[in-house]
Amino acid sequence: MATMQYDKLLTKVRNLSPEERDVLDSPYTIPNELYAALRSVLHDVGGQPDTPQPYFLKEEEDWEMNAYLTSECLAWRGAWNSEMRRRRENDLGATEYFGLPYYARWITGAAKALVDEKLITVDELSAKIDEIRERLEAKKK
C-alpha cells in the first residue's frame, strides 16, 4: 500500500487478530479438533455465542452501491455468479472476512475472481489501481 509506511503497515497487520484467540502462527502440528474448527466454513456463524451490540444504519457511500452493481453486472454477463461471490468471501480467510466492511468483501472477491478466471492479470489490476488513485487524488486537489 503506497500510502503507508512499511513498518506502520506491518504493525497494523500484526494487530488485526482479535484480543482473545488461540495463538496460531503456523504451528508444527495441530490436533484433529483444531483442524475441524479451522476448516469450518467461515460464513456459518449462526448460533455462535455473541453478546448484544448496538445495531446501526450507515450512510451509504457511492463506492458501496457501485460494488454491488459491478458484482451483479459481472454475474449477469457470466464472469461469475452469486454463489461464487459468497464462496469467495469465505475464501478471503477469517481476517479479511471479519475485517472488511460488507461491500469491500464483495469487490475484493470480485477482483480475485477475475484474476483466478484469467479474465485479468494481477499486474493489470495493480497498474489500474495506481492509475485510478492518481486520477482521483489529482481531482481532489
Binding site: 476448516r39 469450518s40 466454513v41 456459518d44 449462526g46 448460533g47 454463489e83 459468497r86 464462496r87 469465505n90 475464501d91
Partner: peptide, 11 residues
C-alpha cells in the same frame, strides 16, 4: 464432512 463451501448450517 464439508470443506470450502456449502450452505448447510452446522446447527
Amino acid at each position: 464432512t464439508t470443506l470450502f463451501h456449502h450452505r448447510t448450517q452446522k446447527f
